[in-house]
Amino acid sequence: MTENSDGAFIEFKNVSKNYKNIRALENISFMVEKGDIFGYIGPNGSGKTTTIKIIVGLIQDFEGEVLIRSKRVRKIRKDIHKILGYLPQEAGFQRWRTVSGILNTFGMLSGLPRNTLKKRIQDILELVGLEDVKNKKITHLSGGMVQKLRLAQALLHKPELLILDEPLSGLDPTSRYQVKKIIKELADEGKTIFLSSHILSDVQNIATRIGILNHGKIMKVGRPKDLQRDFKVGNDLEIIFSEGSKQCNDLDKVPGVESIEIINTNKLIAHLSPNSNIDECINTILAKILEQKCYIRNFNLLEPSLEEVYLKYVGGNIK
């Protein structure tokens, strides 16, 4: 791990966790900076929830060290609730309770003053879109509404750090959009957000940094663009010809070109050999196209999608 730990809001140092004979986390180290939206992605059972439970203090018997604002999480467990809001993946509510009743209890347990609590609950319910069901019992809420209530209780005491475990699961497309918007707005206010998901699309548009976890190991941490760039530097070249341009031949004979994939009459992709000199190869291809008097509309070095990066790391190909 080459990251500089200065300014880290959360820092994991060689953390491991076993459940009896199962190794849930293996020597993981990473950091989350203040103001980050840190997307923590990995398949089901990869150790995301275990990581999160360590941060929020629900798991205390682990190896290694976890620091929040440079303080050991084990030492500040009693005070951590003041700065931390937690949306658990599974946590339920007592079914006989009403939405506002639950928020009232959690608000008081979090130490919010009674005189401001009612107004705060009203604001939060409006923010997450639950104001119409505030007097309904949990047993009458849909799964999506319960998920929004989990988010509401996490935001209630205006924490600096939000730990969201699969916050978009169970939400319909409109609610997913709303929750993503709320997360972005909270980050704009300077809050640090740690967001886990097993679905890449949940995090790729909003995360400023991403950590990929598989089988309890951190496979990669970085900004989305850096992950894409580091993964594979433009080994595919997309060439789009002008309408009516004649076919260009013999591009597969250019040194460094592995194969040519014809997408349609105007578009092809040249797959370059990983060991080739990319600049030299591109120049040769270009020269070949001009030599045959073919007209180019677009010429583009393709970057891998984040999905490709993710699949590569969790798909079992990385050793």
Binding site: G92, F93, L109
Partner: peptide
């Protein structure tokens, strides 16, 4: 029932 539904997690992350 409450253990199964993970009701206590949200209490335990607060000063309870």
């Amino acid at each position: 029932g409450e253990k199964k539904e993970h009701v206590y997690e949200l209490f335990l992350i607060r000063p309870v």
